[in-house]
C-alpha cells in the first residue's frame, strides 16, 4: 500500500500535473465518504431490522434478523454514499 501510494503520488505530480495542495481536500473528501457510508449503513441496518419485524407480523412466517448482517450491505451502503457525494458535487 505504501509503495503504490508513493507511486501514484509521483505519477500524479509528474505525469498528470496534479497539485500537491489538492491532496489534503481529497483526503477530507475520503473522510466525508467514510462518514456518509457509516450513516447509510446504520440507516440501512435499522430499516432492514424494521422490515424483518414488519414482515414477520404481516406474513406470520419467520424471517431471521441475521439477514441484515450480510457483508454486502456495507458495500452497497458505500456505493450509496459515493453516489450521494458525487450527486452533491455535480449539483454545483
Amino acid at each position: 500500500m505504501a509503495v503504490t501510494s508513493a507511486l501514484v503520488w509521483v505519477i500524479g505530480r509528474r505525469g498528470l500535473g496534479l497539485r500537491s495542495s489538492a491532496l489534503r481536500p481529497a483526503l477530507v473528501r475520503l473522510l466525508e465518504w467514510a462518514g456518509l457510508t457509516a450513516v447509510f449503513y446504520a440507516v440501512n441496518l435499522f430499516a432492514g431490522f424494521l422490515a424483518v419485524l414488519a414482515l414477520r407480523k404481516l406474513t406470520g412466517s419467520f424471517i431471521s434478523i441475521y439477514v441484515n448482517t450480510d457483508a454486502t450491505l456495507a458495500l452497497l451502503s458505500a456505493f450509496q454514499a459515493l453516489v450521494f457525494q458525487w450527486w452533491r458535487a455535480e449539483s454545483e
Binding site: L31, A34, G35, A38
Partner: peptide
C-alpha cells in the same frame, strides 16, 4: 462558482469510522 464544502459532521464521523 465555489465548490461545495465537505460535510463537516460526515468528515468527522468518517475520521472516527476509519480510526
Amino acid at each position: 462558482m465555489a465548490r461545495r464544502p465537505p460535510l463537516r459532521a460526515a468528515a468527522f464521523l468518517g475520521a472516527l469510522t476509519l480510526t
